[in-house]
Nucleic acid binder design. Structure first.
Length: 445
DNA sequence: TCTGGGGTCCTAGGACCC
DNA sequence: TCTGGGGTCCTAGGACCC
């Protein structure tokens, strides 16, 4: 490998995981110290803290409670649960109906994302005092590379305890910290003990701490993978680790190899700071509170999604070349239709026209429960190619969009609304930047 | 089971080109 | 018309994460 070309390769390291066997990483991974820090029952804890600070007597964390959506508008799932609720068997992601059957006295509170974002930022600010290398994995999780922190070098576990205590004292909620020398092990470590705990999971501890766990507990082993593994007699992470890689690769392609590596604690990915993470796409979707069964209504819902989505696109400074529309029907069957366009755009109007075309081509004239759009193949707006022919028209649309954006930023998204929504009973604007919209890692890199 | 919303990555199959 | 192989791009759908 030529080191002269190393800098050119560097950018690609952030985009794919083909470099894990790179000597560079192997040589350095033993010296790295990585923390994974996870806020315990984040939404629920944060809501509880806010309520206490605003004079409410009850601590949601001490009673069976959940943060959840409104079943009437068909958003009724559990987003976060208290520990007392967990004791009743309440699970994140299940319907509120189910949760209430398990625990009839359950307290349900609606989510308040603006509060969660503040709590998340406050947590992040404290982490920033210990290292500049922080990856926000989601609203409630961070990876910290503290390899260069003097306290971490002396005793990483002590530092983990110190940070955890600071969060508790200064912000009023608890976190779980995982300590190791790569991200995967740090993440698995933070799962081992919670709430309010710090746990090491260094390579020499894998056999005792990680391998006895059910295979489903491993990062990247979901429902489908668990099933496949169990059919070949693999039930624990240890059994997966000791399995022949070839067998897994044959049955599950690259995913088989990936989970085998994770079971063995192998992961050479870097803690990536925010600015190194590029957006691949921007999407908004919504479950409508009733089944939509006319084209006109569907078009209006799509318009409300295009409004937010295109605004987010413009806000990010990007234009898109590919548009995807997805439908979930009343039987919960999903399907989608996408097109790469011959041009790139960030105009509400142009995106809407394409969205409508895609929808009309795909819709099977059946009741619709959920609609989504996604804008991808992004590039920076500055590089946009314009033909002389459409130059004037596009400039006009662009300035129109930017005026609307400005008004909405200043006075709220409802400040400007399309006339046809006014007596329609439909929401003119749907979706948004969302609380869980931090850049996501998919296979940890 | 009356079951959200925002992401990423992978794969299979088809179209098209050389 | 029959016979290929390799490469790339695109689409739809699935799996996984929080």
């Amino acid at each position: 490998m030529s080191y002269a070309s190393f800098d050119n390769v560097k950018d690609n390291r952030y985009r794919n995981n083909k470099y894990e066997d790179d000597l560079f990483f192997k040589k350095n991974s033993e010296n790295r110290i990585i923390f994974h820090i996870d806020a315990n029952s984040a939404f629920l804890s944060w809501d509880a803290v806010y309520r206490l600070q605003h004079g409410e007597g009850v601590d949601l964390r001490e009673i069976p409670s959940v943060v959840g959506g409104d079943p009437k508008s068909r958003h009724g799932i559990v987003l976060a649960k208290s520990i007392p609720a967990k004791k009743f068997g309440v699970q994140t992601g299940e319907s509120l109906m189910e949760a209430k059957i398990k625990c009839p006295k359950l307290t349900v509170v609606p989510p308040r994302f603006h509060i969660y974002i503040k709590s998340s930022n406050a947590m992040f600010d404290i982490f920033s005092e210990y290292t500049p290398i922080i990856q926000r994995y989601s609203i409630d999780e961070c990876f910290l590379d503290v390899s260069e922190n003097e306290e971490a070098k002396r005793d990483p576990y002590e530092l983990a305890i110190k940070i955890k205590e600071r969060i508790k004292v200064e912000l009023g909620f608890t976190v779980s910290v995982g300590v190791s020398n790569n991200k995967l092990l740090a993440k698995m470590g933070s799962e081992l003990k919670k709430p309010d705990a710090a746990t090491t999971l260094f390579p020499h501890e894998i056999e005792n701490k990680l391998w006895p766990l059910p295979v489903r507990e491993l990062f990247m082993v979901g429902r489908a993978t668990e099933k496949k593994l169990r059919t070949i007699g693999i039930n624990t992470i240890g059994e997966l680790a000791q399995c022949e890689v070839g067998v897994l690769k044959e049955r599950m392609k690259s995913h088989g190899e990936l989970v085998w590596k994770y079971a063995n604690g192998i992961d050479h990915s870097l803690v990536r700071r925010e600015n190194y993470i590029e957006m691949k796409g921007i999407g908004n979707s919504t479950t409508i509170s009733f089944d939509v069964d006319t084209k006109e209504e569907a078009h209006m819902v799509l318009m409300s999604l295009v409004e937010t989505c295109s605004m987010r696109l413009r806000d990010s400074g990007n234009i898109c070349k590919c548009i995807t529309v997805s439908i979930r029907n009343s039987d919960f069957i999903n399907y989608s239709h996408q097109r790469v366009m011959s041009y790139e755009t960030n105009c509400t109007d142009e995106i809407y026209k394409e969205v409508i075309r895609l929808f009309d081509e795909m819709w099977k004239d059946e009741p619709i429960r959920h609609l989504g759009i996604r804008l991808s193949q992004l590039s920076t707006a500055k590089n946009r190619q314009l033909t002389l022919f459409d130059y004037k028209d596009i400039k006009k649309k662009e300035s129109f969009d930017s005026v609307i954006d400005e008004i909405r930023m200043k006075y709220g998204t409802d400040a400007v609304v399309r006339a046809k929504f006014i007596h329609s009973g439909l929401k003119p604007i749907r979706g948004g930047a969302g609380a869980e919209s931090y850049p996501v890692m998919s296979s940890i890199l």
